[in-house]
């Protein structure tokens, strides 16, 4: 057998799933940034980095919630229209003369209840979450249009503190995004609930028979994800001071894409908030780089699609090789033919 001479810490980092998925993304982010900066020196200059993060903070909050669901083997397509609905309800409450804080609490409560409903239907009646939340997507979109009478609802300047204030010179949405990611990363790694999420996603039946409360775990994931989607919707509304019922219709798919980029698989059991964070940043950097390099906007979606396809193909090849030939770097597996076969000397 091979003896691994690398230090234990180095081995652990190299062997961890996180590093396998994240390293290529970080390399891609740096490469794209340096290239674009070479073309246009403003790319890495001061405000643009903050702008990039600001652009994706709403997506990032939603994607973090989606990470929990995907790790538990679930999925929620309805988060995008739920976020839009949250924005519309928040803005409408203000116009009807309520306090901002009350509006925020009410919206989060409503979203949590929808999450609870999805969770109970999925865990209790074993309805496939894809179909269920596809239905929810249309439902929320329709309700948002009804409440807003099909036009954006102005929230005046009442939500400025939520979406446009700065703390230490950084806009609040970026803070929200970072805080949500840090808390989620802690929860997934260091809490019983987090481990239950991964176990449920890896093998639900085995987890249930071990005694893990799989149904409760799934319900909680839906509640957390929907609440985060509601919060993201409020932040988006506060940023533009308008509750737009048609806002962000692509957020759900982009969020799922970010989770998958960061190492999540729709089969469940994998995915991490930090990975998702890096996935979101990659999407943002790509988008921004396209603008800086004056690529026409109709290519945006194509590039987004290609990045995603490329990422899953590379992951799939890696998994396939790993299953067949054991863990080793992807490139080494392609040149396996020349290696001598090791016969175990004893058994």
């Amino acid at each position: 057998m091979n003896v691994d001479n690398r230090s234990p810490l180095k081995q652990r980092i190299l062997r961890s799933d996180g590093a396998r998925f994240m390293a290529p993304l970080i390399v891609a982010i740096i490469a794209i940034s340096l290239y674009t900066n070479g073309e246009n020196g403003n790319f890495l200059g001061g405000d643009n980095l903050k702008n990039i993060l600001l652009q994706v903070s709403v997506l990032g909050i939603i994607a973090t919630g989606q990470t929990l669901l995907i790790a538990a083997g679930q999925l929620d397509l309805s988060v995008a229209t739920l976020a839009a609905l949250a924005g519309v309800i928040g803005a409408t409450r203000i116009n009807d003369g309520g306090s901002e804080l009350w509006a925020v609490v009410l919206v989060l409560l409503i979203c949590a209840l929808f999450g609870l409903l999805w969770g109970i239907l999925v865990a209790g009646l074993k309805i496939p979450p894809f179909i269920l939340t596809l239905g929810g997507t249309s439902l929320f979109a329709s309700i948002a249009l009804r409440i807003s009478k099909s036009s954006p609802v102005p929230a005046r300047e009442r939500f400025e503190w939520l979406g446009r204030a700065k703390v230490f010179g950084v806009q609040t949405p970026i803070w929200y995004f970072l805080i949500v990611v840090v808390i989620a990363a802690f929860v997934m790694r260091y809490t019983r609930f987090g481990r239950h999420v991964y176990a449920t996603g890896s093998n639900e039946e085995a987890s249930y028979l071990t005694g893990i409360p799989t149904a409760r775990t799934k319900v909680l994931c839906f509640v957390i994800s929907s609440t985060l989607a509601g919060f993201a919707g409020l932040v988006a509304m506060a940023r533009i001071s308008t509750g737009d019922p048609r806002n962000g219709s692509q957020l759900a798919l982009q969020a799922i894409a970010a989770v998958v980029l960061g190492g999540g698989t729709l089969a469940g059991g994998r995915g991490s908030p930090i990975g998702t964070f890096i996935g979101v940043v990659l999407l943002a950097v790509v988008q921004s780089a396209l603008t800086f390099n004056n690529v026409q906007t109709f290519w945006n979606d194509a590039v987004f699609g290609l990045v995603l396809i490329f990422a899953v193909v590379v992951t799939a090849i890696g998994d396939l090789r790993r299953r067949r030939f054991g863990a080793r770097p992807i490139l080494a597996s392609f040149i396996r033919r020349n290696e001598p076969v090791q016969v175990p000397s004893e058994k």
Binding site: Y190, T191, R192, F193, R195, H196, Y198, A199, S202, N203, E205, A206, S207, L209, T210, G211, I212, G269
Partner: peptide, 26 residues
Amino acid sequence: KGLLLERTLSDNIVLGQQAAGSNPIL
């Protein structure tokens, strides 16, 4: 029905402890 097949030996052994206890932090 028993194992998390693609997870490690250690993950599978500690699953019982993760399921049983009540302390929320691990």
